[in-house]
Computed example of a mutant assay.
Amino acid sequence: MKTFTPKPADLTHDWYIVDATDVVLGRLASQVATLLRGKNKPTYAPHADSGNYVIVINADKIALTGNKLGKELYSHSGRPGGLRRDKYSELLKNKPERIITSAVKGMLPKNRLAKVQLGRLRVFAGSEHPHAGQNPQVFEIQQVSQQAK
């Protein structure tokens, strides 16, 4: 039996929409990273770009467990003195997209393919998105936060 290697003609990029309302950040990020890599397809290969487009809506309603509201998210611009640190509590109010993007980025492989896969992630704070023309399939995450119940 030979190993199956997908050809470029075999690769399809489907669109999925995920609602982040009352979903724990880590659970959401791991499911989204799986969809972005294409691991839900039978034609998955780690070296091939078989990933999907993922739309995350309601990013401002995500559940943060533990003491993450006091935790800081660090980023660096690459310039001298360019270290930036923002608290999760402030980011949840101002830019909740950045929280989800950085969590998903940490769960992708550290290679050139990750940049392409992360480029297929679309995160929106509200429930409206401009990608209705792509007819995204709804991807349901079953486990919601215990605090939300």
Rank of each mutant, 00 (worst) to 15 (best):
G82F: 15
Q137C: 04
H131R: 09
P6L: 01
Q117I: 00
E72S: 06
D60Y: 00
Y44T: 05
I99E: 03
Q117C: 04
M107P: 02
K2Q: 09
A9R: 13
V24K: 08
R122P: 03
K71G: 04
P6D: 00
R79L: 15
P8Y: 13
F124L: 02
I62Y: 05
T34Q: 07
G133R: 13
I17Q: 09
K110P: 02
K95H: 14
L36Q: 02
A20T: 02
G133E: 11
I141E: 02
G82I: 11
Q147E: 12
I99N: 03
Y16M: 03
F139H: 09
I17N: 06
N111S: 03
V104D: 07
F124H: 14
R122K: 15
E90Y: 12
T65L: 08
F124Q: 02
S77H: 04
K95D: 14
P130W: 14
G126C: 06
R27F: 07
T65W: 04
G133C: 02
D22V: 05
S75I: 01
D49E: 13
D60V: 01
D19C: 01
G78T: 07
T3M: 12
K93I: 07
M107D: 01
T5L: 13
H129K: 05
I100G: 06
T43S: 13
A63I: 00
S102G: 01
T101C: 04
Q146C: 08
I57D: 00
S77A: 14
D22I: 01
A114D: 01
H131C: 00
Y88K: 02
G106W: 08
S89I: 10
V18Y: 01
P80T: 09
I141S: 09
V18C: 02
P46Y: 09
G119V: 04
A9M: 07
S127H: 13
I141C: 09
H131A: 01
S89F: 07
L113K: 15
T43Y: 14
K39V: 00
A148D: 05
A63N: 10
L83V: 12
P96W: 13
V138S: 13
L118W: 06
E128F: 13
D10G: 05
V56G: 05
G38W: 02
I141K: 10
Q143F: 09
S102W: 07
D19I: 03
R98I: 09
T12D: 10
T101W: 14
V104R: 02
S102P: 01
G70E: 14
G106N: 10
N58S: 04
H13Y: 05
R122W: 12
T34K: 11
H47T: 10
R112C: 05
R112G: 15
